[in-house]
Simulated assay, not measured.
Amino acid sequence: MNVLQNIKTGIILLALVLLHTNLVQAHTIKKVCTHDEPFKVYCDLCGCATSSGSFGFGTLSNANFVGVRYIYQNFESRNGIFENSPTSKESFNTYQLWAQIPINKSFYVSANLPYQDLTRNFNNVKENINGLGDASVIGWFKLPFYKKQNTDKVDFNIEREASGHSLQFGLGIKLPTGKFEESLADNINPGFQVGTGSVDGIFSLGYNYGGDKYGVNTLFSYYLKGENKNDYQFGNQFSYATNLYRAFATEKMNIMPFVGVSGDVYKKITQYGETLEDTDGNILNASIGSELAIDKFIFGASYTLPISQSLFGDNVESKQRLSVYVNFAL
């Protein structure tokens, strides 16, 4: 019920902002999807083992922004090896402040500060934990590619024409700003935590192509997990994501529907130097969504369902994921 109320509130706020924007913006909107600003996706890590690192950190419309995002995920965990074993139903609500800030033409920084609200229902007993999650900061270097110049004639125009292709290299850190509760470590779903309590490294490599109408992006990220003060260490994580979008531009707005696939591979958790069995896994997802850009406001939503998964000895099942956001382009 709280999830539905949160979604309804978000829809109302989006509608109010859209109405206000249409009333005060009467001029033609600049084209927001260009060869120089293709769709960028960045990994976001909320600090939970089963929370995907592949659900994106960026927008289709503009490379630089500040904004808020809401993510809903739900899981079902089976406490036992039999089909009729008792199950735990878990809902993860994440509220994020996120941004991408330019340093210069080649360097930029992305940052994310989440608030977690997690609920679990097991044997008709409801449990809730909430609080600040793990913040992350990533520094990025962009390497654009340019069209080949014609060597048969002299061109005094020193401005090279972008091809639309580019590579991104990211190096970042996740901070232990979220609380890790050791009493929850024995849960079937170890992701039921607001934070990991550890300092983690983030290494990313991305490829983007942005054309006038179509664009594609691919991102690979590796999370090197650290050990927290409780001698508990989440397994290292590899995440990947690919998205294809189509831009429809009008005089006052850009609409960009997209489809994509993403996934995560989790290594086993260790505690007190020993590897814990059935704590690794993998998941492959399919996503569909759209984005609406009106002047400097960017509104987006996506819906994700698993294609295949094997999480924590097949005892944890991811059901679905919903994400909505509102950004202001810089």
Rank of each mutant, 00 (worst) to 15 (best):
K225E: 14
K225F: 08
G226R: 12
G226C: 02
G226F: 11
N228C: 08
K229G: 12
K229E: 15
K229T: 12
K229C: 01
N230I: 00
N230L: 02
N230F: 10
D231L: 06
D231A: 10
D231T: 06
Y232M: 02
Y232G: 05
Q233V: 00
Q233N: 08
Q233C: 02
Q233G: 01
F234P: 06
F234D: 08
F234V: 01
F234S: 01
G235A: 07
G235M: 05
G235T: 07
N236W: 07
N236P: 04
Q237I: 09
Q237Y: 02
Q237T: 15
Q237N: 14
F238G: 10
F238A: 14
F238P: 10
F238M: 08
S239R: 08
S239G: 11
Y240D: 01
Y240W: 15
Y240H: 12
A241W: 05
A241R: 15
T242A: 09
T242D: 00
N243Q: 15
N243V: 09
N243P: 01
Y245P: 01
R246Q: 11
R246A: 05
A247T: 15
A247I: 09
A247P: 00
F248M: 06
F248P: 01
F248K: 07
F248G: 01
F248Y: 13
A249E: 15
A249M: 08
T250E: 09
T250G: 15
E251H: 08
E251A: 04
E251M: 07
M253W: 11
N254H: 09
I255N: 11
I255T: 13
I255H: 06
I255G: 02
M256V: 14
M256I: 15
M256E: 14
P257G: 11
P257N: 08
P257K: 03
V259R: 09
V259G: 09
V259W: 04
G260T: 09
G260S: 13
V261D: 03
S262I: 04
S262K: 14
S262C: 06
S262V: 05
G263K: 09
G263V: 06
G263A: 02
G263T: 08
D264S: 12
D264I: 04
Y266S: 04
K267P: 03
K267Q: 15
K267T: 12
K268S: 14
I269A: 03
I269T: 14
T270C: 02
T270Q: 12
T270I: 01
T270H: 02
T270L: 03
Q271S: 11
Y272H: 13
Y272M: 10
E274H: 12
E274K: 15
L276T: 02
E277M: 04
E277C: 01
D278C: 00
D278P: 00
T279K: 08
T279F: 01
T279S: 14
